[in-house]
Design a protein around this nucleic acid. Structure first.
Length: 264
DNA sequence: GCTTGGACCTGATTGC
DNA sequence: TGCAATCAGGTCCAAG
């Protein structure tokens, strides 16, 4: 999409998680996408109109690309799917379709000039794999915090971009109990946790992400990281390291999987 | 100010 | 087979 114009946008319902922008189709019609970027789990398309189209996949959102001229970037999909909510008709003939059964995703337009004030992005913490994220940063960010470390790692204002799966996997890799209070992590544990977070994210990206049930790349291919989970969704199975039984608990309403023997 | 839990929504799976 | 209950990758907001 980068460098191409959106010839026409087809909006098939009024809202996703939030209402779609007012006059959405009109505001993006004929706009060129000057730059496509990602921040944490947010996608940002900088438009030639001076607005930024912010997109989030929620839990079940996906983009698929179809059509186009022979020889151009082209993926075939299985045809029209239920829950195709927004279709971008691109210069060159491709269609880029946003599908999202649960509609936890969203799309918003925001002036590029004031993008720094965009509320959903302005309080994000540093991303794993960035210079701002390190054991020293964790020491500072977790100091004095009472919430369990599992909840702190899911907090996007502390670290941006980690979800439930990768938090479980990173804590296992670092040998830290998800129930441990955040304030007891700084020091040696943070020194193990920071590289564990980076390793999990890097490996997951290299494997093409995780497919629980409906994740897919733009060509419909599934991610493969889920074949490497050490603890996530492995309740009752033996720990790959020590053979103890992997446990599942609920923290802040989310499932946590961990090895009670390896993670202290 | 910090933390937790419910809400948002549909579909797949499990258990009766 | 059919139905109801439960659970799922994220974020926001109200209540405690």
């Amino acid at each position: 999409m980068e460098g191409r114009r959106i010839l026409r946008l087809e909006q098939r319902r009024a809202d996703l998680r939030f209402p779609l922008p007012d006059r959405f189709a009109e505001r993006v019609a004929n706009a060129r996408i000057d730059r496509l970027a990602r921040q944490a789990k947010f996608l940002a398309a900088y438009l030639s109109t001076g607005e930024v189209l912010v997109m989030h996949l929620g839990m079940t959102g996906r983009f698929t690309i179809a059509g186009g001229q022979p020889g151009s970037f082209h993926h075939t999909t299985g045809g029209a799917l239920a829950h195709d909510h927004v279709v971008f008709h691109m210069e060159g003939g491709e269609t880029v379709t946003y599908n999202d059964p649960r509609r936890f995703g969203f799309m918003e337009l925001w002036p590029a000039e004031h993008f720094g004030a965009y509320p959903r992005l302005k309080d994000l913490g540093p991303e794993p794999l960035s210079n701002g994220f390190s054991a020293a940063y964790l020491d500072r960010a977790l100091a004095g915090k009472a919430a369990p470390i599992k909840a702190a790692l899911l907090d996007q204002s502390i670290i941006a971009g980690l979800g439930n799966i990768y938090v479980c996997e990173a804590l296992y890799r670092a040998g830290i109990s998800p129930k441990r209070l955040s304030r007891s992590v700084p020091g040696q544990r943070a020194a193990r946790l920071a590289p564990a977070v980076n390793a999990i994210i890097a490996e997951a990206i290299a494997a093409g992400g995780s497919s629980i049930s409906d994740f897919a790349a733009t060509d419909g291919a599934l991610g493969y990281f889920q074949h490497r989970f050490d603890v996530y969704d492995r309740e009752g199975e033996p720990c790959k390291h020590c053979g103890s039984i992997v446990k599942r608990i609920v923290q802040s309403g989310r499932s946590t999987f961990y090895c009670p023997a390896c993670q202290r």
